[in-house]
């Protein structure tokens, strides 16, 4: 009898152990989870995983550059199963902490770390931006379109070169007005300045603006509504924010990337190395939904699909700012 009891206890203990939830730590960039853009996407992916896969999620926001490493360290010390760093700024921290904690898995979005326990999630932003540029050009009546970037860094320039290539692909005679909000991390969170820049561009005759600036984007949407012009959102689907004035959003599916990584870990399929998300696997795409169906006709979508397949088949080469820079 006693032995039987012990056996049952043992069994229960075993079952209890195997059902223990995976612990996932999410380190967000300074924009914070409410930026309705880049970080929001990551946060959504992780919360979806929490709901559907039954993992335990803890997210934090970095206070400064040096605190990022500290956050990763603390997660590792607490034996989290997977730590996901969101944003290029965390690359060094992930590299360092991952090397010291080979038994903990890491993932980094927008950064590249080669280690046996790190998966790097990269996006082909220039491809999506090319599409956005093509659509912007189709919708522009003034032959003048605008681009507003957040922080002036190579990644945001990559959006810009893809975008202008898309515009020029439609019609070489177009002019593109390019502005950046700033040079500090504040640029991701400065809607007021974004609005000023947007109003200025509209004043110059621009009638479609693509904005890649995290939480600052909302300022551009305000300006679009005020001046009855169009804007294009970024990262998350932002079409709902000002229906009728947001032509589309260039999706960067950070949510899918985060979700898939967590799911892979749970299924024992976690692999290290680089995973690229491009047009092919819908890692970058344009958002079409009920909020912008009046702005983009079925005919337009057909044209875009054509461009998309051409890019995937490499009939159109989209200039990549990273490669240009290395030359």
């Amino acid at each position: 009898m006693l032995i039987k009891n012990i056996l049952i206890l043992f069994l229960v203990a075993c079952v209890g152990q195997s059902a223990e939830k995976l612990k996932i730590g999410l380190v967000l960039d300074k924009g914070g989870k409410e930026d309705k853009s880049f970080n929001s996407a990551a946060y959504q992916g992780a919360t979806l995983a929490e709901k559907e896969l039954g993992i335990e999620l803890k997210y934090v926001e970095a206070t400064d550059v040096n605190s990022i490493e500290n956050l990763h360290r603390q997660f590792a010390k607490k034996k989290f199963d997977l730590i996901i760093g969101i944003g290029f700024a965390q690359q060094e921290a992930v590299k360092k902490v991952a090397a010291q904690n080979p038994d903990v898995k890491f993932a980094i979005v927008d950064g590249e770390v080669s280690a046996a326990n790190v998966r790097s999630l990269l996006f082909e932003e220039h491809q999506g931006s090319f599409l956005a540029g093509y659509l912007a050009a189709m919708k522009s009546k003034t032959k003048k379109v605008g681009y507003i970037g957040g922080m002036d860094i190579p990644m945001i320039r990559r959006f810009a070169t893809g975008y202008s290539a898309g515009v020029k692909h439609f019609d070489k005679s177009f002019t593109i007005v390019e502005n950046y909000i700033g040079i500090t991390a504040d640029s991701w969170n400065n809607p007021a300045k974004a609005k000023e820049l947007a109003l200025n561009q509209y004043q110059q005759g621009v009638d479609v603006i693509f904005v890649a600036a995290g939480a600052s984007g909302s300022g551009v949407f305000d300006a679009a509504e005020e001046k009855k012009h169009l804007a294009i959102g970024v990262d998350s689907n932002q079409n709902w924010m000002k229906p009728g004035f947001i032509l589309t959003s260039m999706l960067k599916r950070v949510d899918t990337a985060v979700y898939t990584t967590i799911k892979d870990l749970q299924n024992g399929q976690f692999t290290s190395g680089v995973v690229r998300y491009g047009l092919k696997d819908k890692g970058v795409d344009l958002a079409m939904d009920k909020h912008n169906e009046k702005l983009v006709s079925a005919d337009d979508i057909k044209k875009l699909e054509k461009i998309k397949t051409d890019i995937i088949a490499q009939k159109i080469t989209v200039p990549d700012f990273y490669l240009q820079k290395k030359k």
């Binding site: 290029f88 690359q91 190579p154 990644m155 040079i183």
Partner: peptide
């Protein structure tokens, strides 16, 4: 500083400014 970083001093191995 951001002018100098972005134009002349940027670390070629990193996305970070």
């Amino acid at each position: 500083s951001s002018y100098l970083i972005s134009q002349y001093l940027q670390n070629p191995d990193s996305q970070n400014p």
